[in-house]
């Protein structure tokens, strides 16, 4: 067989050139296809944002932001939902950050390598993959029924905290791990105890990373819908929530109910779109803050 190849005229220069040309052609067209496929995401994002903004035009105004809910589209506003989402974050932020950072400190600084550490780590990565609707069932059963918190802001906030906890844990772990050992050494060599070193050296240095992760977790929580729906947030709440034990509605919930009811009243689609714009602007702001923190506190050692 090998002898044949040398005689085979496939290997003559002309043929080879043709073949190479063909291969380069295929390569170039493949590159184009791949590029288009990568641009597909951009295209969809563009259409989505364009559609939602155009649908919201004429509906998103001060009156919409400051009014209570109403069954009449012209009068309806999302003030209650904005307050609800805000109060939800008032619960989620401290609970998640305290639990998440503490867990990360335990895993990175105190736990010794072994079964327990592996168990907690595996558990957290699996928890991150549990569908949010399941967290809704957990919240409904444990917080809503067992602890009798109903569908209050507290119940919703605790449910949401558990849902986004893995995000904060993983981000904090990475931030703590990135603190160079020589800074710890400097502290220990001055006679500092472990907790002194962690609180005065490790955490301040890891803070930007922890904050970035926490903000990302918050932005996930602020847009999450399923757990709240499962918790049984009422469809129409006219009262603005006053404290964390009140029933409430939140921005994504409002989008959900208005979308469902477009069958009844076509203008609800515009209200949903206007609410989405508000939600996306909030997310955009949160993410920008995260990026600013990340850039401003870039490591200098």
């Amino acid at each position: 067989m090998e002898c044949k190849i040398t005689k085979n005229n496939e290997l003559n220069v002309e043929n080879l050139k043709k073949k190479i040309k063909k291969r380069i052609m295929i390569d170039k067209s493949a590159k184009l296809v791949f590029l288009l496929s990568a641009l597909f995401a951009l295209l969809v994002l563009g259409i989505l944002i364009y559609r939602i903004f155009t649908q919201s035009i004429g509906w998103l105004d001060i009156q919409f932001l400051t009014s209570k809910l109403s069954i009449f589209p012209e009068k309806a506003g999302i003030f209650g939902a904005i307050v609800g989402s805000f109060l939800l974050m008032v619960i989620v932020a401290p609970v998640t950050i305290i639990l998440g950072v503490s867990t990360a400190i335990y895993l990175e600084e105190y736990s010794s390598k072994g079964r327990l550490q592996t168990l907690i780590k595996t558990n957290i990565s699996n928890l991150a993959g549990v569908p949010s609707v399941i967290f809704g069932l957990l919240g409904l059963t444990v917080f809503g029924r067992l602890l009798n918190l109903g569908s209050s802001i507290l119940a919703g906030g605790l449910t949401m905290s558990l849902l986004v906890l893995p995000i904060v844990v993983v981000a904090s772990q990475e931030a703590i791990r990135a603190v160079p050992g020589f800074l710890r050494d400097a502290s220990y060599a001055m006679g500092a105890s472990k907790w002194t070193t962690i609180s005065r050296v490790v955490l301040p240095v890891a803070l930007p990373g922890i904050l970035t992760g926490s903000i990302l977790a918050l932005s996930r929580a602020i847009g999450e819908t399923a757990p709240l729906v499962v918790l049984g947030i009422p469809t129409l709440i006219l009262k603005i929530p006053q404290n964390i034990m009140d029933d409430f509605t939140a921005l994504p919930i409002q989008i959900y109910y208005w979308t469902l009811d477009t069958v009844l009243t076509a203008e609800y689609a515009n209200l949903a779109a206007a609410t989405i714009v508000v939600l996306l602007l909030m997310l955009f702001t949160l993410n920008s803050i995260a990026i600013i923190i990340r850039n401003k506190f870039q490591r200098r050692y």
Binding site: F182, D185, A186, P204, R299, R300
Partner: peptide, 9 residues
Amino acid sequence: FQKPNPFPK
């Protein structure tokens, strides 16, 4: 230490 290790403060 071998390498200067001030705190980032």
